[in-house]
Design a protein around this nucleic acid. Structure first.
Lengths: 117, 117
DNA sequence: TTTGCATACCTTTCAGTTCAAGGTATATAC
DNA sequence: GTATATACCTTGAACTGAAAGGTATGCAAA
């Protein structure tokens, strides 16, 4: 046997994190989320609708988001807002992300405590 | 048609980045890389051999790493060291990672320049 | 002495994600 | 009437990492 224990897909959940965070700040609909990520990250992160919509549905299914329908200018929008469960989830994802980036940063900067092998 | 243009698998390349960085600092063999990542990140990142070895082979195939074989205590090790091509690759991955985390951080902290929608 | 564990290499299979591309429909501008 | 932007959606391929397996050596304990 090889690997003793690893982490389940350690780099995942970032789209989920971004979506939850944006909606936590302010009720949003799917198409709006796609644009918001593009704009706020200045094109550094480009997540298409094929990513956003399925995540939105999954989050609602899990009770992290709830939705309401509204038609504006003849266009049907589905507004999502965060639930207490979603807040918890967002909090988990955020701290996990911090932990990960800190760990990676340590390796990238590296060399301080190491060498002693 | 939906998505105009997205980024090719935006969260990838982190194992590659870590491996290149470690080997850039100091010649290393595969098994050692696995342990180094585990130790230096204090278990925050656990990448098994099933991840490390294929990446090592791919990097060597691409000319980013070169290897030499050596037997120590009856155990056959394959030491990898970085090439100029690997340095370039490491540099790219590092700046790309910085760009990404900065973008994500902006969304997480959020709310400073936004609101104006 | 044989069992187990750590070292050290490797591969294959499965599951989960993302990307790309498509589809539907309405409103507005040209 | 054609194109573009808005707004929703799904499917398929491709890629990745996780899990689990396999081989082999050296050493320590039972």
């Amino acid at each position: 046997m090889a690997s003793p224990k690893t982490n389940p897909n350690f780099m995942n959940g970032v789209p989920e994190l971004l979506i939850l965070k944006l909606i936590a700040k302010q009720e949003m609909y799917g198409y709006e989320v796609v644009q918001a990520i593009r704009l706020q990250t200045e094109e550094a992160i480009l997540l298409g609708e094929g990513v956003i919509y399925p995540v939105l549905h999954a989050l609602e299914r899990d009770g992290a988001l709830k939705s309401r329908r509204q038609t504006v200018n003849g266009r049907r929008r589905i507004y999502y807002s965060i639930t207490p469960e979603g807040q918890r989830r967002l909090s988990d994802l955020t701290s996990n992300w911090a932990r990960l980036t800190k760990a990676i940063q340590t390796v990238i900067v590296g060399g301080q405590h190491a060498e002693a092998v």
